[in-house]
Amino acid sequence: MSWQWEKLSDCLERRYVSGERVTVAQFRIREGCVVPRHSHPQEQISVVLQGLLEFEVGGRRFTATAGDVVVIPPGVEHEAKALTDVVVVDAFSPPRSDWASGQDSYLRR
């Protein structure tokens, strides 16, 4: 997988690479963009590099800012809304095979 930017919607871009046991992704999210509620079997660790990102994880709502780290357990429903322009890095284990196979329609609007 190449490390190229992919436009998922008018407000969301992603680039990612997968290894044997992990997928690492970087997202650029425009202010006001919502990553809709979803869940997946992977554990997710998100690091906000820039901006303010409002999360709802398992029914708990909070705001993360640059330098904050969020851990999302496998199978837990979550969503995110960009309160400003945001750059975030996410790590997923095991790898996101659904992305590689194009089964990520919830991100593509």
Rank of each mutant, 00 (worst) to 15 (best):
Q4W: 00
Q4V: 13
E6N: 07
S9C: 05
S9P: 04
S9I: 07
S9Y: 00
S9G: 07
D10W: 00
L12T: 07
L12P: 05
R15T: 05
Y16S: 10
Y16M: 08
V17D: 01
G19V: 05
R21M: 08
V22M: 05
V22A: 03
T23D: 01
V24L: 09
F27K: 03
R30I: 14
E31Q: 15
G32H: 08
V34W: 01
V34E: 07
V34L: 14
R37N: 14
S39L: 14
S39K: 12
H40F: 03
Q44D: 06
I45R: 01
V47P: 04
V48I: 15
V48D: 02
L49E: 10
L49Y: 09
Q50F: 14
Q50Y: 14
L52Q: 13
L52G: 13
L53W: 11
F55W: 11
F55E: 00
V57H: 01
V57R: 00
V57E: 03
G58Y: 06
G59V: 11
G59F: 08
R60Y: 10
R61S: 14
T63I: 15
T63H: 00
A64V: 10
T65R: 13
A66C: 09
A66V: 11
D68M: 10
V70N: 01
V70P: 07
P73T: 06
P74H: 05
P74D: 01
G75V: 03
G75F: 03
V76S: 03
V76M: 04
V76K: 01
V76E: 00
E77D: 11
E77W: 12
E77H: 11
E79T: 14
E79M: 14
K81F: 12
A82P: 12
L83M: 14
T84Q: 03
T84R: 08
D85V: 14
D85P: 11
V87T: 14
V88K: 01
V88C: 09
D90G: 09
D90C: 09
D90F: 08
F92P: 06
S93Q: 04
S93K: 02
R96L: 06
R96F: 04
D98P: 02
W99K: 03
G102Y: 04
G102I: 08
Q103R: 15
D104L: 05
D104H: 11
Y106E: 09
Y106I: 13
Y106W: 13
